[in-house]
Each structure stands twice: as structure tokens, then as C-alpha cells.
Design a protein around this nucleic acid. Structure first.
Length: 902
RNA sequence: GGGCAGUUGGCGCAGUGGUAGCGCGUCCGCCUCACACGCGGAAGGUCACAGGUUCGAACCCUGUACUGCCCACCA
């Protein structure tokens, strides 16, 4: 005997192994078919997958399976991302915790090797998770952004962009993370509103007289001030311009200058200019040729200032400076001030604007092409409201800082000859005593040699060449992903067949970091957008809508949930809540319904199979069933699968899931199976079983893209009954709408029977008729058609409403001690001697009547309105008329029943 | 400062012009021989607010409020 409840664990393991063994997901080029290609947004190898990956990949899997079942040549390309800074941070933390070592203790080579070792471990865990979630990725060919083929792509694109002079090196004010000790691009910086303070400081004139008061949020940078600036239009300070003031605490004299960048009405209207530590000030400094003084090191420590502050942390120095300013009587005012603070998107610490030499990609031309493509909708966003922000971003784009001062990543493919570039290179010695190239300066004579492998110096022929110490932004390799996965720049068969891909499915939070850049690179290198559609999923949040994070302790682990409820339940619950571009609040409760649905599917199947024993397959859906409920369920099924397919095509995943859920649970289980039960002992049995099995099998096919395991498991046990079934559901055709199976009449007739049944059930429940007690009813209708249906299919009502006997006819008189229900033209009288509570019945009828009366009033108002009758579509007018008629009839019947109670 | 979302029964959400649905929860009755992860029934909403367009608005337009997010060099 099969267990009563579905046990996903073993089933999923078994099915998963089977898929793997039979290589069901292996991509094979088939020129006769249209390719359907998705490249996975490669997860970072920073740890196991989280709920966001669960959602994102489940959506992709659903699409991939769906399209494959629609006859397309599907290829879903798996892989992972080396994850630059994020991964380096993870490994550094791990090293510190487990071995109390820093990366510098290991040295660059060993550290990088450590991360590679980690990749093997973490990558495998991720690939294993892919399998456990049932994602139809072709895992025979896994890509990693750091593997050799992808490294070649990175080199090729760097070389290409360098030759076009799009890549350059320059001294710029960039975003520097003192914790990660690296430059970041503009979009890797987050801006958090924080409660800070605005300090008003007094800068006295050289002669010790009044001077000027400035407002700043960063008093610790006063030591690096080069000037005080005011707006040229500012009358208040006119007489001071050109004079010099003294920096508090150190009494260095700096000039008062004018610059447009200063706002008249902010603070005091006077701005301290610190070119080394603020991007605006840097620009001002350039305009006025001001001295650049750095007082904060790349590690965030104070340098180049009085000994008292030397070596202090930024924050510590700020506190001390304020204290000292206050003591010196130069702190005029301290006010609360809410302002944006830049933070690192990887480690959250405050960003320092930092002047340094970095590598950049010139963006204007790349972005212009992408802008055009987005504007023309060569790339279409779902939901569409992302088009404008993307265009806006592309229009206002800044050059992309691509160098990172970390060790884990694609090392910049630029080399220097130690002889010819001698003056531009700075070396240090690491803890192993090894000489390391620390800094490169083109200004001082470093000459670049672009090369993937260690080159000979093209000038002096020396083999003593050394590679640039920086690595590339991790997004540089990601930008190439849709091409690099197919071996670009080689014009491989795969690239030709699979590129451009069909759709990108990703989260809206990386549109700029990733999506926009892929579009630019795709256009630049292959002349084609990498995907014509972008489907955006939301962020999976906790049940209260908060972002999940380890520090908050509100993380829901997909592995735990999968273990507990099954992968199908996790998948279905995510899909059911996934509306394009919208975040999903997800708690454990979210999954219960999906788990219950799995169980429902399982039990319905179990029941059908129990009753199929001894019946030989194959069983086909009868072409022309004569029984009403057979015609009905086939028609309903036909509509349900069509609607599901239509919704999937529009990327309304939740709507598709909802449709199939309600068809299977409502129509199929609650009505069809219930009605079928009585027929198992009749000559109909084989036909009923045929229908049950075929509709079930078809519904499993329709559900398969969303819940692959349970559908596969059940389908396998049904194969013996199914004609021309394939070994796996993914190889089957997705059910299609068949107009011949549509049966409007059957649907109408069933609706009447269901409605009447509903009336009887309600009354039974209201008057506490014992569930086991079979009752007699009277069904009265003046409508001959309805009457005929009731009479012909009275057995349906008998079974579903537990009747013992029924009297049917036109205008039957209402017996005494009777409860009344009305559905359409039909009045239901239920004699309930001893059970009926007249007051309760009256109240019930009153309420019913009030609702109908409201409806009647509405329709009357509409139909009395000439504008409605003249302007509204005929269909609507007819509908209102019909509804009015029906309501009037019902009202009349209820009124009669009520009067009779008195 | 600019932009984008959201505001629908206790909770979480669907619903883009014809008078509101789903899941969970609640209440009542059932262990009915597939399923109590179940079955049958019920209660519960002036669709944030104010105007406007329309014969008709949860849906379109304008404005307001609140919430969230993104972008932006007022220190």
C-alpha cells in the first residue's frame, strides 16, 4: 500500500538521478528546430544558493521546460561567477577565522590557489543544488567565469577595446573602499541616508580677525583643505574673496576663492575645498590649480597631519578633531543632519573618494549603441516600466572603472618590461619575501604590453616582464557571459546556433551592473543584442517584507525547505507568488499551500490508479463521450491548459500556476472524481478511467514545467495506459487547445447542476443536517430546458448533495417545514421537519433577498439610462437584461418562500 | 531634488473599463472506504483619500497622504 502522504525526498532523488543518467537536459544542436536559449545568471561562489536564486532559476526552468515541450531546441546554460570582491571577502574571513591568517600572510599566489580550492568545494555544492531543485540545466558543460575559455574571452575583449582606445588608464577620483582596499565603479556604491551631523567651523583670517564660517560633515578632512570657496554671486563674502584664512588647529593659510559649484543657500554658503577627499572639491581644485593634500590612506588611516592624529581611524580622528575644535572655540555650531553616505555594496563600509590611477572603459559610444537598441525595443523589458530608467542610465553614463586592487579575478592582461618601464613601476616585498609589483604609473614611464600570456618585451626583447597587479571588475567578465559561454571570440558552432539567446531572466537589482553591460558588449562584439527579452523577477524578502540577511537572522534557506517540503513545493510556492518585477514576501507559511497541492495531486493519482487495476492500456480519450460530466471535464481541461500556456507566454507565471491549481483541485478532484466514483461499478468504468487517466496525464504535462518531480513520478506510473508516451515529460508536447473538445453546452448544464447542488449543500450545512443523512428535495423550475437537465442528470445531484429522493417539476407547490434555495430558474425546497429554524431561515432569505435586490436596482438603473443602452456594447446591454430577468425571478421565488414562512 | 512602484476582506496577494477574486487565517459541521496536507458550508471588503473623464471606474486622468525602491557631486 502506498503511503497516504506524498514523500518528496526519495522521489526527487530518484527522478533526479534518472534525468542525470539519461542525460535528459543535454543540449544538442538541432538545425531543424528553433533554438530556445537561456544562460543562467551565474551565482557567485560565495556560498550556497539562497531563495533569490531559487526564484530566479525556477522561473528560467519553467520557461525552458515549457519551450522545449513546445518543440523548441532548448539549451539552458549553467555556470557560476567568480564573484571578485565578494568571494575574496568570504575567503579572507574564512582564513582569518580558521587559521588567523590574512591574505598577505599567504601571498598572492597561495591566496589565489586557496580560492580555486574553494571554488571546487562551493561550485560543486551549487551544481548539486541545481540538480536538487530539478533545474533542467545541461550540467555536462558547466562554465565558470574564471575558467580558461572565459579567460580567453576576457582577454579578447580587453584587447579589442584597447585597440579601439576605449580602454585607458587615468588618474581619477574614484570610489575607494578602505575595508576591501580597492576601487569600485560608481554603481557598486550605495547611498544610504544616515543621521549625521553638520558642523559649523570657524576659519579665522590670517591676522586673527573674524574670517569665515563653513559647514562640513567631514571635519577630519580640514587638514587637507586647500581653499575656502564661495559662490561668485554671494554678496556676503564679496569683500573676503582673495584673502587668506587659517585652517583651525594647524593654522595653515588657505585662500578664499569663488566657484559656481558652491550653493548660496546651503550651510553658510562657504565651502571648504579638500581636493584629495571629495569629488566636487577635486574638480574645484583642478579649476583653481589647488594643492592636493591627502590625509587619509588607502586603509582609512590618517596620514600627513600632526602627530596627535597620525594613524588614527577616520571616525576616531573625526571625534578628536571636533573635541579639539570645540576646545579652541572654533566649533560654532553642531546640528543634526540627515544625509546620504556612500557605502560599499559588498561590505557596507563608508566609501572614500580617492585619487588614484585606474583602468577605465570609455562608455559613450558603447552606451549610445545600447541606448538605441533599448529605445527600439530590440531588447524588451518585462515589465516594460524598466525601459525608461535603463535609457536614462545609458544617457547619463560615466566611464567604467574596471580595475580592482584585489587578487581574485581576471588579472589585467597588461604587462610591463622591468627594464623599459623601470621608472613607472613601484615594487614592494610581501611577507614571503617575494617582490611584488605594487603600483604602476604611466605618467612616470610605464609602457603597457597587452598580452594574455607572459610576453617578451617588444622593445628590448627581455623576458623580464611583469603583469599589472590589478584585476578586472568581476562584472567585466559577466558582461561577456552570453557570448563567452559559447566560446567567443571563437566563432564556434554553438555561438552561431545559440547566440543571441532568447531571454534573460534576472533580478531588477542588477540591471545596470550587468544587463546594460551585456547589451553593450553584445552589440560591440557580435553586432547583436545578447537577448531580445529581459524578464525581471523581484527580490525574495522575509514574511514582513524585509530584505533577508544573515545579520538580521531572517534568512529562509531553500535547502531546509526543500528538505522539509520538497523541491516542487518550494518551486510552486515561488511561482505562485511571482508577478513580474514584484518582490515576494516569503515565509515558511508561503510553502504550506504548495505542499498541500503536491499531496492533493499525489492522492488523486493514487486513487485513480487504485481503480485502474486490471484495466489494460493504452487508454485513449474517447472522441465523443456521451456522458455530460465527461464532456464537461474535457472541455474544462481544454480551457485550463490553453489558459496556462497563454499566461506562460506572457510571463504571467503566477496566473498560469493558479489556473492549473484550480482546475486540478476544483474541477477535476472536487467534481469529476467525485462523480466518477459512482461509475466504477458500471459498464462505464473503462471509459471513465480512460478519461481520468488522460486528463490527469495531460494536466501533469501542463504542470511539469513548474513542478517537474512529482509530475514525472506520477506520469511514469501512468505510461502503460498512455498511447505514444515519451520516456520523460520534458520530451512530451505541451497540451494544446483543441476546439473540438470545447463543449459550451456541457459547461452550462454542469453549472446548473453544480449551482443547485450548492444550494442544497448550503441549506444542509445551515440547518445542521447530519452529513450522513440522505434527504429529499423538490426542484421546481418553469424553464423546460433546465428541468430536462435536472431530470436527466438527477443522479449527479443525488451523489453530490446526498439525496435520497427528488421530486421535479414546473411550479411545484412549496411544502410546509421547508427551507428554500434558489439558483437561476430553479427553486429548491428541502423539507426539514424538526430541523428547520424558521427565524434562521427567514434571516437567511432576507439576506439573500437584499443582495439580489441590490443587483436588481443596479441593472434597472443601467437599463433606464438611455446613455447606457445606446452607448454600451450590445453584449453588455443584453447581459444586463438577462441578469435582471433572472434576478427578478429569483427575488420573486424567495419572497414567496418567505411569505410562506409566516 | 528627480524617477518608479505600491496602498484591495485579519494577514499575504491577484485582478487594467461592465459592479471584486485567490491562498492563509477565522467560524460551523464532518475521520464520507484518494487525501484531516482532507471534505462540505459560512462570515468578512464604501478596492488609501479628494476631484475629474465615462452610460459605467479598483482599473483611465489630476492632485493629496503614507510606504518601499532606484537615480542625483548641496558640503
Amino acid at each position: 500500500m502506498l503511503p497516504k502522504a506524498y514523500e518528496p525526498k526519495e522521489v526527487e532523488q530518484k527522478i533526479s538521478n534518472l534525468w542525470k543518467e539519461k542525460q535528459v537536459f543535454k543540449a544538442k544542436i538541432d538545425e531543424t528546430k528553433k533554438p530556445y536559449v537561456i544562460v543562467i545568471p551565474p551565482p557567485n561562489i560565495t556560498g550556497v544558493l539562497h531563495m533569490g536564486h531559487g526564484l530566479n532559476n525556477t522561473l528560467q526552468d519553467t520557461l525552458v521546460r515549457f519551450h522545449r515541450m513546445n518543440g523548441e531546441c532548448a539549451n539552458w546554460v549553467p555556470g557560476t561567477d567568480h564573484g571578485g570582491i565578494a568571494t575574496q571577502n568570504v575567503i579572507e574571513k574564512k582564513l582569518a577565522k580558521e587559521q588567523h591568517l590574512s591574505r598577505h600572510d599567504l601571498g598572492r599566489e597561495k591566496f589565489v590557489q586557496t580560492v580555486w580550492d574553494w571554488y571546487k568545494e562551493c561550485g560543486n555544492a551549487i551544481y548539486n543544488q541545481f540538480e536538487r531543485m530539478g533545474w533542467a540545466l545541461d550540467q555536462s558543460n558547466i562554465r565558470f567565469t574564471m575558467d580558461e575559455a572565459r579567460a580567453k574571452s576576457v582577454y579578447a575583449s580587453f584587447k579589442n577595446l584597447w585597440d579601439k582606445k576605449y580602454i585607458y588608464r587615468g588618474k581619477r577620483m574614484i570610489n575607494w573602499c578602505v575595508r576591501c582596499s580597492t576601487a569600485l565603479s560608481d554603481i557598486e556604491v550605495e547611498h544610504d541616508q544616515q543621521n549625521g551631523k553638520l558642523w559649523h567651523l570657524h576659519y579665522k583670517l590670517e591676522d586673527g580677525s573674524d574670517g569665515i564660517i563653513i559647514a562640513t560633515t567631514r571635519p577630519e578632512t580640514i587638514f587637507a583643505d586647500s581653499a575656502i570657496a564661495v559662490n561668485p554671486k554671494d554678496e556676503r563674502y564679496k569683500n573676503m574673496v582673495g584673502k587668506k584664512v587659517l585652517i583651525p588647529l594647524i593654522n595653515r593659510a588657505i585662500p578664499i576663492i569663488v566657484d559656481e559649484a558652491v550653493e548660496l543657500d546651503f550651510g553658510t554658503g562657504a565651502l571648504k575645498i579638500t581636493p584629495a577627499h571629495d569629488p566636487v572639491d577635486y574638480e574645484v581644485g583642478k579649476r583653481h590649480n589647488l594643492e592636493i593634500i591627502s590625509v587619509i590612506s588607502d586603509k582609512g588611516k590618517m596620514i600627513n597631519l600632526p602627530e596627535k592624529y597620525l594613524g588614527m581611524d577616520r571616525d576616531e580622528c573625526r571625534k578628536q578633531t571636533i573635541k579639539d575644535l570645540d576646545a579652541a572655540g572654533l566649533l560654532v555650531k553642531e546640528e543634526k543632519y540627515n544625509h546620504a553616505v556612500s557605502t560599499c555594496y559588498r561590505c557596507n563600509s563608508a566609501i572614500e573618494p580617492y585619487l588614484s590611477e585606474q583602468w577605465f572603459v570609455k562608455m559613450d559610444e558603447l552606451a549610445a549603441k545600447a541606448l538605441k537598441a533599448v529605445e527600439n525595443e530590440e531588447v524588451k523589458f518585462y515589465p516594460a516600466n524598466w525601459k525608461a530608467p535603463v535609457m536614462n542610465w545609458l544617457k547619463n553614463i560615466q566611464d567604467w572603472c574596471i580595475s580592482r586592487q584585489i587578487w581574485w579575478g581576471h588579472r589585467i592582461p597588461v604587462w610591463y618590461c622591468r627594464h623599459c618601464s623601470k621608472d613607472g613601476l613601484t615594487f614592494t616585498t610581501d611577507k614571503q619575501g617575494k617582490e611584488q609589483l605594487a603600483k604602476v604609473s604611466f605618467e612616470n614611464g610605464a609602457k603597457p604590453i597587452i598580452s594574455h600570456d607572459k610576453p617578451l618585451c617588444p622593445i628590448c626583447g627581455s623576458s623580464d616582464t611583469i603583469q599589472d597587479p590589478d584585476v578586472l571588475d568581476t562584472w567585466f567578465s559577466s558582461a561577456l557571459w552570453p557570448m563567452s559561454v559559447f566560446g567567443w571570440p571563437e566563432q564556434t558552432k554553438d555561438l552561431k546556433y545559440y547566440y543571441p539567446t532568447s531571454i534573460l531572466v534576472t533580478g531588477y537589482e542588477i540591471i545596470y551592473l550587468w544587463v546594460a553591460r551585456m547589451i553593450m558588449m553584445g552589440l560591440e562584439f557580435e553586432g547583436k543584442v545578447p537577448f531580445s527579452e529581459v524578464m525581471l523577477n523581484g527580490i525574495v524578502r522575509d514574511k514582513d517584507g524585509q530584505k533577508m540577511s544573515k545579520s538580521k537572522g531572517n534568512v529562509v534557506d531553500p535547502l531546509d525547505l526543500t528538505q522539509k517540503y520538497g523541491a516542487d513545493a518550494v518551486r510552486f510556492s515561488l511561482i505562485s507568488q511571482s508577478v513580474l518585477g514584484k518582490d515576494i514576501p516569503y515565509g515558511e507559511n508561503s510553502i504550506i499551500g504548495a505542499r498541500n497541492f503536491c499531496n492533493k495531486i499525489y492522492n488523486a493519482s493514487r486513487f485513480i490508479q487504485m481503480n485502474s487495476e486490471g484495466i489494460e492500456g493504452p487508454l485513449e480519450l474517447p472522441a465523443k463521450p456521451k456522458e455530460l460530466c465527461d464532456r464537461w471535464i474535457i472541455s474544462r481541461y481544454n480551457h485550463a491548459v490553453k489558459q496556462a500556456a497563454d499566461e506562460l507566454k506572457k510571463y504571467n507565471m503566477a496566473a498560469a500556476a493558479d489556473t492549473l491549481y484550480h482546475f486540478l483541485w476544483g474541477d477535476f478532484c472536487d467534481w469529476y472524481i467525485e462523480l466518477a466514483k459512482a461509475r466504477f461499478n458500471t459498464a462505464d468504468k473503462k471509459e471513465v478511467i480512460s478519461i481520468l487517466i488522460n486528463i490527469l496525464y495531460g494536466t501533469l504535462k501542463a504542470l511539469h514545467p513548474m513542478m517537474p518531480f512529482i509530475t514525472e513520478e506520477i506520469a511514469m506510473s501512468l505510461k502503460k495506459y498512455i498511447k505514444n508516451s515519451k520516456e520523460f515529460l520534458i520530451e512530451e508536447d505541451y497540451p494544446v487547445f483543441n476546439p473540438a473538445l470545447e463543449d459550451k453546452q456541457a459547461e452550462e448544464e454542469m453549472a446548473l447542476l453544480q449551482g443547485v447542488t450548492g444550494q442544497i449543500r448550503t441549506i444542509r450545512a445551515q440547518f445542521n443536517v447530519p452529513p450522513g443523512l440522505k434527504i429529499k428535495v423538490l426542484l421546481s423550475t418553469a424553464d423546460t430546458k433546465d428541468l430536462a437537465v435536472l431530470q436527466k442528470y438527477q443522479n449527479y445531484i443525488f451523489a453530490m448533495a446526498k439525496l435520497e429522493a427528488a421530486q421535479m417539476g414546473a411550479n411545484l407547490p412549496k411544502p410546509k417545514q421547508t427551507a428554500t434555495g434558489v439558483y437561476g430558474t430553479v427553486t429548491v425546497y428541502i423539507p426539514l421537519e424538526g430541523l428547520i429554524d424558521f427565524d434562521k431561515e427567514k434571516a437567511r432569505l432576507d439576506k439573500e433577498l437584499a443582495i439580489i435586490q441590490n443587483g436588481i436596482n443596479n441593472r434597472k438603473r443601467m437599463l433606464d439610462n438611455k446613455n447606457f443602452v445606446n452607448n454600451a456594447p450590445k453584449q453588455q446591454v443584453e447581459k444586463a437584461k438577462a441578469e435582471l430577468e433572472e434576478m427578478l425571478l429569483r427575488a420573486q421565488q424567495i419572497k414567496a418562500a418567505k411569505e410562506d414562512l409566516n
